[in-house]
Amino acid sequence: MEKEKHHIVPYKIYFYILIALITFTFMSIGITKVNLHEYSVLGAMIFATLKSILVLTWFMHLKFDQPFLRFMVGFVFLVFLAVIFITFLDYYYR
C-alpha cells in the first residue's frame, strides 16, 4: 500500500472553516435582501457554491485525498451541470 499519510487536521482549522461557512450563509441572506432582481439567484448560488467547495475540500478531506478522487467529484458535478444545461435547451427555447 502507498504510505498512506493519514493527515490529521487540527481542530482549529475546522473551526475556521465553520466560521467561514457561517459568514457565507449570512452574506447569502444579505445579498438576497438587496434587490438585485434576476441576479439575486445568481448571488445566492455563488455563495452556496463557495460553501460547498469549503465542505468538500476540508470537511470531506478532498484536499488530502488522491487527485483522482478530486477529478471524479469535479466530473460528477460537470455531468450534472451539462444535464441541466441540455434540459434547458428545451425549456428556454420552447
Binding site: 450563509t25 439575486s40 445566492a44 455563495f47 452556496a48 460553501k51 460547498s52 465542505v55 468538500l56
Partner: peptide
C-alpha cells in the same frame, strides 16, 4: 457532510427568494 452539502443548496433555493 453530504447531508450538509445538500442543505447548503436547499436553503437558498427555498428560503432566499
Amino acid at each position: 457532510h453530504l447531508v450538509d452539502l445538500i442543505w447548503i443548496f436547499l436553503f437558498p433555493l427555498f428560503y432566499l427568494i
